[in-house]
C-alpha cells in the first residue's frame, strides 16, 4: 500500500519530508544530472545575498572525524541573478523551492525579502546563522534581541511563509527560537553548522584559509537531535530538523525528536544518491512498522 509521505510546513506542501539543505545543493542544476529533482520534497537553495559575493579564499574544505568543515563564505551570484536566471528554472522542477537569504544588515534582509515577495517562490528561509562571514547574519542568530528585530523587520516585507534557520553556536537555542516565533516567523529550521577549526601540524597553519569554518556531517547529528527536541518544546511553530542526517534511520530519529520535515546536506557529498536512498529507506521502515502516514511519528519521543 502506498504510504503518505506528504508533509506541510507553515502551510507549504512538501511531497515528502526531505529537503536538500542550503549550501549543499547549489541551485539544483548539478544534481539534476544524477536524478530528477522532483524526487525531493524540497530544495533550499544556496544562501543568497543582495549583491554577488566571491566568498572566502581557498582552501574552504577540511575533513574531520565523521564530518567536514567548510568556509565557503556565501559565494553566490546575488538575489537579482537568482530571481532572473535560477528561480524560473527551479520552479518547473515539481518540487518545493525555498530561497535561503543572508545579509549583514536588517535593511538588506528586508530588501531581499521584498524582492522575493514578488516572485512565485514557495518559501523564504532566513539565514541568521552563517558562521563564515560577518555579512552572513550570525550576529543576528546569536542574540535573541537581534534575531527578534531582524525577523520582525523581514516579516513586514513579505507575505511568503517565513522560516528562520537557527545557529547552534548559542547558549540556548530555545530562547532564540522563541524570539523569532514572537517576531512572526512561520517555522524554524535547525541547525546550521557548528563553528570549528583544524590545524595542519606540519605547517602549524589552519587548514582553512578563513582559519575557522562550519562543522557538518554525522559528527553533529546528536547535537541537532538534542536541539530539535529542545526547540520543539519551546515553540508552537513547525520545526524543520537537520544536521548530520545520513540514513533513513537518522531522518526518522529527527522526526521522532520533533521535526516535521528534515534537511540533508553533507550526506549528499558522500553519496549523491543519498536523498533517494533515505526516502526509500523511510518507506521500507514505515512498511515494517505499519505506519501509513509519516506525520504520525513527528515528535513522538517519550522522554524519561
Amino acid at each position: 500500500m502506498t504510504k503518505k509521505m506528504e508533509v506541510e510546513v507553515a502551510g507549504v506542501r512538501f511531497k515528502n519530508p526531505l529537503i536538500a539543505a542550503s549550501g549543499t545543493f547549489g541551485y539544483g542544476r548539478e544534481y539534476e544530472k544524477f536524478y530528477s529533482l522532483s524526487n525531493l520534497g524540497g530544495i533550499s537553495v544556496k544562501g543568497t545575498t543582495d549583491t554577488p559575493r566571491m566568498g572566502n579564499l581557498s582552501p574552504r574544505i577540511a575533513e574531520t572525524p565523521m564530518g567536514m568543515l567548510n568556509s565557503v563564505g556565501l559565494e553566490n551570484p546575488g538575489i537579482d541573478h537568482f530571481i532572473e536566471h535560477e528561480l524560473p528554472w527551479l520552479m518547473q522542477k515539481n518540487t518545493t523551492i525555498i530561497a535561503n537569504i543572508a545579509a549583514g544588515t536588517e535593511d538588506l534582509y528586508a530588501k531581499i525579502a521584498q524582492k522575493l515577495d514578488k516572485t512565485n517562490i514557495h518559501m523564504v528561509e532566513l539565514n541568521i546563522s552563517c558562521p563564515n562571514v560577518k555579512q552572513g547574519g550570525a550576529a543576528f542568530g546569536t542574540s535573541a534581541k537581534a534575531a527578534f528585530d531582524v525577523v520582525s523587520r523581514v516579516r513586514k516585507k513579505t507575505k511568503k511563509p517565513l522560516m528562520v534557520k537557527l545557529s547552534p553556536n548559542v547558549t540556548s537555542i530555545a530562547e532564540i527560537a522563541k524570539a523569532v516565533e514572537s517576531a512572526g516567523a512561520d517555522a524554524v529550521s535547525l541547525i546550521n553548522t557548528l563553528l570549528g577549526m583544524r590545524i595542519d601540524i606540519k605547517t602549524r597553519r589552519p587548514i582553512l584559509k578563513n582559519n575557522v569554518g562550519g562543522l557538518s556531517g554525522p559528527a553533529i547529528f546528536p547535537i541537532a537531535v538534542r536541539m530539535v527536541w529542545q526547540v520543539r518544546k519551546a515553540v508552537k511553530i513547525p520545526v524543520v530538523g537537520g544536521g548530520g542526517i545520513s540514513s533513513a534511520e537518522d531522518a526518522i530519529e529527527m522526526m521522532v525528536a520533533g521535526a516535521c520535515a528534515f534537511q540533508i546536506g553533507t550526506a549528499i557529498f558522500t553519496n549523491p544518491y543519498s536523498p533517494l536512498d533515505i526516502l526509500s529507506g523511510i518507506e521500507a521502515w514505515m512498511d515494517d512498522n505499519n505506519i501509513q502516514d509519516i506525520n504520525e511519528i513527528v515528535g513522538t519521543v517519550e522522554d524519561w
Binding site: G23, Y31, S58, P59, R60, I61, M68, P272
Partner: peptide
Amino acid sequence: RMACGVGACLGCQ
C-alpha cells in the same frame, strides 16, 4: 580541497 566534486558546494574555488 573538494567536497561534492560536481560544482554544488562551491568548496574548491
